[in-house]
Structure formats: C-alpha cells, structure tokens
Nucleic acid binder design. Structure first.
Lengths: 144, 144
DNA sequence: CCTAGTGTCTCTAGCAACTATAGGTTCAAG
DNA sequence: CTTGAACCTATAGTTGCTAGAGACACTAGG
C-alpha cells in the first residue's frame, strides 16, 4: 500500500492533483489508514499512470473518463476507444497545422524588425493590421 | 460610433469578451450613449483588432498588455516588441515539436487497433503502459 | 517516551480567458 | 405604440489544476 505522496512520485503526478482526480470522480475513493490517510494499491497506480499518460497525449479528462469506462468492460469492441484516439489525432493534427501558420507569420514579423523605433516596428504593425498577412499564411478563425 | 455588437462583428470578437477586456483593463472604458450603452470609435476597433489578432497568434493577454503599452510610446526602440515576438516564436516552435511527438504516438496507437476486443486494444494498453512508447517518440514531461 | 519535522488532512480561493445565465433597460422597425 | 432584438449589470460556471491556511498523523532521533 502506498501513501499519496509515494503514489504521486511513482506516477509523476502531484499530490493535490491526485486528490483533485478523486474529487471529480476519475479516481475512485481511496482506502484510508487508521489515521484517515489515503492508501493506494498497485491497481490505483496503474490507473493513475494511465491518466497521466493520456493527459500527456493531450486527452481531456472527459475523454479519459470515457477511455477508463471502456477499459472497465474488456469484452466490448475496441472501436469506441479507437474513435476517441482518432478524434484526438485529428485534433492534434489541426493544432499543428495552425501552429505552423502562426510560426511563419511570427518569423516574418521578427525578420522584418529592423531594430528601429516603435513607430516603424513591423511587429506592432502586423499585429494591428490583419490585411498585412499574406494569403498563403493567413491564420485561422478560432484559437489554440 | 459603433455599438458593442457592431464592434464585435467587425473585429470578430464576441460581445461578452469585449466587456471582459474592458473589465480587465485591456480596453479603455468606452464612452456611453444617453441610455448608458457603450459607444466605440474607429480607434477602439483598431485596438480590439490588434488584440484579436495577437490572441490568434497565441499571445497571452499579459503579453498583449505589454505590446499595447509599447505601441503607446512610439518613440522607443522596437527591441522590446521584438523580444516578445521572439519569445512567442520559441514557444510556438516548442509546442509544435511536442505535438509532433504526440501525433506519431497517436498514429501508432490507432494503426495497431485491429478492431478486436477492448482486452486486446492497443490504444488502452499503450495509454496504460508508458514503457510501450518507443524511445524515438517518447513524449515529454509537461503538457499542451 | 517525547519531540521535531515532514507528510497528510479538509476546505477554500485563485489562475487564464473566457462563456453562460438571470433579470432588467434601451433602441430601431413596423 | 408595440414588439423584439440588442443592450445593461452582476454573478457563477468552465477546465485542469495550484496554492494557501490551519489542523492532524506518522517517523526518526535523543
């Protein structure tokens, strides 16, 4: 049995985050010691590692909730898990595409900065006037 | 003079967001009509477009606050604005790198899903066991 | 056995950057 | 003059945590 601190260290998750996960119901309520401290089994460590790893991959806690409920019914088809992963993949690809557009625009901005006065600064100017973006690198509506 | 609704439409920003920007002091308090409704000049539209555009580029509101205060003193050197843009560029590049790593891992996960039972599902398995990540595409600590 | 120091407990509030809701007022069109 | 859209304020909710306060539990040394 692990204390919350050891569990956190082993899974690479901070202690308050573990308590937060329990609070929102993504981790089950832990057993308690005589002195009311949380105690965790190896199974809990696996579950937390799963969550941590999924968060690293950019899955939302909602998606992780779905994946966990799937993994609790091991005899069903894996297509739902596949769909969640594919949606996540599409999301990541779209983020990459948008970030690449931003990157080239930022590069243009920085390259055009001649170190002059603010009044002539392309960085400020480009940010103020969308029409200065060239059409190839026009950025998209919506964020992140 | 524009109402808040027209301003929002022209700048591509939602009405509550404009009021929020005013509240946090990134937009100055607007003039008011006889009936207490906000009225905006063309200058306000430019400022809001600047903010919108910068947000699209991933700048935080804090960074935008700095850029705006720079553009209010047009005789200074542009090096501060340049530094902010360069920092933002580095940030974007690092996000792209991390997302590319995630992408290849997600692709591997999805490709290995044979449509079988959950018990055999690679998606679930890979998420549960970090050691299954191959070393080339190991993902990084920290998120987004 | 006591004590010091760390770890843990609960609860609450805060972060970014909005979004949504409620309940009321003002304005423009017909 | 009435209707309905757009506006007003104020408050609370969102996501995924993080930080703080004040109290209790556990462990190692003397």
């Amino acid at each position: 049995m692990l204390t919350i601190g050891k569990l956190g260290t082993q899974a690479g998750v901070k202690v308050p985050t573990i308590r937060y996960y329990e609070q929102i119901g993504i981790l089950p309520e832990a057993e308690r010691s005589a002195g009311n401290q949380r105690l965790y089994s190896h199974k809990a460590l696996e579950r937390l590692a799963f969550i941590r790893h999924s968060r690293d991959l950019g899955f939302t806690l909602e998606a992780i909730r779905d994946l966990l409920s799937l993994s609790d019914k091991p005899d069903q088809s894996c297509s739902a898990a596949d769909a969640i992963a594919k949606a996540q993949l599409r999301e990541v690809e779209s983020r990459i595409a948008r970030l690449n557009a931003l990157k080239s625009e930022l590069e243009r901005m920085v390259m055009q900065c001649a170190g002059g006065r603010i009044a002539d600064c392309r960085v400020i100017e480009v940010l103020g006037d969308h029409s200065l973006c060239d059409s190839d690198h026009r950025h998209v509506e919506g964020n992140q």
